[in-house]
Design a protein around this nucleic acid. Structure first.
Lengths: 151, 151
DNA sequence: CAATCAACGTTGGACCAGCCAACAATATAC
DNA sequence: GTATATTGTTGGCTGGTCCAACGTTGATTG
């Protein structure tokens, strides 16, 4: 028995949900490893990106922008605050809220993660030609939009 | 402030890895809910499918066919065995191994899950035309194959 | 034959992602 | 002023993936 017996059942191999999961899992591994090497994880990047794009925000709006649950935002921000990548200070105009601000270090770190991510996209899409990449992202965007609306 | 402030940062919105994750997460929710309603989860379906397609197997080869870690195969098979969807008996010709067999109930259950999954694929790909669906699965298959090889 | 190495099932644990329930404090609406 | 909603926070659960270790058993090889 020298043949590699790693073949997946046909019903799985051809199911779009399976394929998407496969590719997603792989991308997940790549991103996870890349971010881990930079001392971060997915939630951190999402939060930093939202802060960079929308400016100082409350934790709740951060959660809405990133699709991260309020409770998980807390934990991730704790980690980011411990590294002084963000600043958390009470909102004087609404004492329920914290205002989260990106620090200079946080901005630098975000740039670093941006580069990590860019390299990973290339890795992920390596076998596709540029027009094919556009096709793929186009189709995926339509799927994502469709399901975002009906959510 | 009446506008829904759920927009995701642009760097994320356009990153293929993000899109794939989004769609994968959605598909994951659908599949998870569908399987849960049928009293199963992803690992169960994969294992049942592998058993159906390749016949009685040892746990290790099941793991290889499904991409599930040996240790997780154990747990999932325990659950399947508790419902008598599979049969686990020692291999007389190699006492390290167990021979896992699909029971009649297991076969029926697999069929049920097949139907659940088929409905979900339709749901997932709803916004795409048939040729677009083929495009998508084609592109995804190429990505999956490429990364499977280099693994 | 004996010794080494590889494969198997199993246990236990780690991690990340996502989700939900509850709570006290605060703000808003009626 | 009383009810309702939002915010931050704690705690916990589930699924999926992965890894390290162990004892048992088979295969290899010297």
């Amino acid at each position: 028995m020298t043949t590699a017996e790693a073949r997946t059942p046909a019903r799985l191999r051809h199911a779009p949900s399976w394929l998407i999961n496969l590719v997603s899992a792989h991308s997940h591994r790549l991103v996870g490893a890349g971010f881990a090497a930079a001392g971060a994880r997915g939630y951190h990047y999402r939060l930093l990106a939202a802060l960079d794009e929308y400016g100082p925000s409350s934790q709740a709006t951060l959660g809405r922008h990133t699709g991260i649950d309020r409770s998980d935002v807390v934990a991730a921000l704790n980690e980011l605050a411990a590294k002084e990548l963000i600043d958390r200070s009470p909102d004087p105009s609404d004492r329920r809220r914290n205002i989260i601000t990106l620090t200079a270090d946080g901005s630098r770190h975000l740039q670093e993660l941006d580069e990590v991510l860019a390299r990973i996209q290339d890795d992920l899409l390596a076998p596709l030609t540029p027009p094919e990449r556009e096709q793929l992202t186009g189709l995926l965007t339509r799927l994502a939009d469709h399901h975002a609306k009906s959510r």
